[in-house]
Amino acid sequence: MDACGNPDEDLEKKILVAHQNNDGLKLAELYAEAAYNSPNKNKACFFMVNAYTLALEYKHPKTQSFFQFLKKHDREN
């Protein structure tokens, strides 16, 4: 994670690969990882929105906890 709260290059690469492979479940996990790692609340929520969206689509077992993360920050209800 860099100082602005963006994911490091390695994670970013993994995210791009997962996008290319259409691997929604993996992508949800990688976005969640980016969210948890980010020190910047807005950036973290941005990533978590993506994680939560994909989790909804692919029925990821962590969907509820992603939702709670957003809810805690008033980004979902």
């Binding site: 973290a44 990533f47 929105v49 993506n50 939560y52 980004r75």
Partner: peptide, 10 residues
């Protein structure tokens, strides 16, 4: 997703 701006679903 992001309907209220980046990272904001509301």
């Amino acid at each position: 997703p992001h309907v209220g701006g980046p990272g904001r679903n509301l």
